[in-house]
Design a binder for these strands. Sequence first.
DNA 1: CTAGTTGCAAAGCATTTGCCTGTGG
DNA 2: CCACAGGCAAATGCTTTGCAACTAG
Lengths: 132, 132
Amino acid sequence: MARRDTPQQRSIRDAIESAGRPLSVREIHELALEASPTLGICTVYRVLRRLLDDQLVTTVQLPGQADRYEATSLAAEQHHHFRCEECDRVFNIEALPSGPGSMLPPGFTLVGHEISLWGRCSECATPECATR
Amino acid sequence: MARRDTPQQRSIRDAIESAGRPLSVREIHELALEASPTLGICTVYRVLRRLLDDQLVTTVQLPGQADRYEATSLAAEQHHHFRCEECDRVFNIEALPSGPGSMLPPGFTLVGHEISLWGRCSECATPECATR
DNA sequence: CTAGTTGCAAAGCATTTGCCTGTGG
DNA sequence: CCACAGGCAAATGCTTTGCAACTAG
């Protein structure tokens, strides 16, 4: 149960913490390889799971996209996510109530947006309908 | 190139058109199996692709979720998507500018929402940076 | 020491493709 | 007829797991 500190984990944590934006597993792997050249992708997945368990890292899920991960400290600030269709990078965008895209950084072009909601539907909100 | 009309395709189209909400591949397969008991899942994928090519069906992508599909006629109306965490079904929610969740059907409980943006970042907006 | 960690290879899972049989028009 | 479709099984791509070797503490 006790967590052990290894160079591989340090490489992965460093990659996530120094990025300043949510990273995909591939991006994390590529960045961490510079410091730990033998690092396997499966170790990235395993370390990510531990970091998620320990709440040090937060999952960023976008429509139709593989999960990204960012340091929980960064995730604490209220923001939206902007994905560049060209380079596939995801950026954090300051959240403003004045509608989507109102606070894009200079030079960014908005193509589309999606508002996704989740919770319980009326059938499942009542206890006796717990059976899907 | 010419499209042929087969019972399998009719079953799949019927399932999508009569649902009134976006369906997952699994849901489409299960519904269409009632009318075409030998229908294979790979045929569902192939027919879906054809329907997407012909713009008869639209993809609905939600964060961290497998793609759903709905009739393009339904998709034309401006709406958001609500996924029930219990039964995993996705519903269409009338879009209103007055903030997320303002137009939930009676009995629905909102747990969270996410606003996703996409387009071009400043680096990729300029032609010479087309290389990711 | 020794339990947690790593790296490889194999297993899962969802989706796609190859290939041969079936069939709509 | 025969080109498009369907069904099976194999391939793919991403993520997870089994297992033996390794190592932090």
